[in-house]
Amino acid sequence: MSRSETQSDTYSESHVILTSVRILAPFTLTYGLFLALHGTDTPGGSFQGGAIIGVTVLMLAFAFGIEPTRRWLKNSFITGLVTGGVVIFAATGLATIALGGAFLEFDAFTDAFGLSHHWGMEAIEVGGVALIVSGVVVTLFFAMAAGFTPERYNAVQEDGAEVSDDD
């Protein structure tokens, strides 16, 4: 099966799918954010929340087509999510060392700024793990969808040409 055929397969014009995704997407996004932001007090957590936030994008891609979603999502945004998560996580850990504690010893924040231990956990859960997981889920999806095409802009251009090349 050629590349252009595959893409027309995954692009659905079914009204049922489009409508249900339109209705469901705000709820899944809210639920993902709830799990991530409220994970320290209720079941769930940033890993689950981040995964559900990522899945919301996957759902949109399934309904509205992978290529339009890929163009809508800026690469710098996903790069920022994934690397930003790692940087925030590491920075939180190093900050506690700078304040005289051990790596990720949040009580150092309490001594220095009077912040509850709780906020250190929120920082690495919401600012670290949730960002990394949601970014990586989206990355895996688009990387799998693209396969062995080097760059997305070239890939988009090739698609137009490929339609006539295939027969």
Partner: peptide
Amino acid sequence: THAHNAVSAVLASYRGFDTFGEAIVIFAAA
């Protein structure tokens, strides 16, 4: 930890360094 979910507390606070390693593994996978 002032957190009410013991699982989150273990992951993010008591075993925070392990979670850091796991986050890096996910990053490396991508």
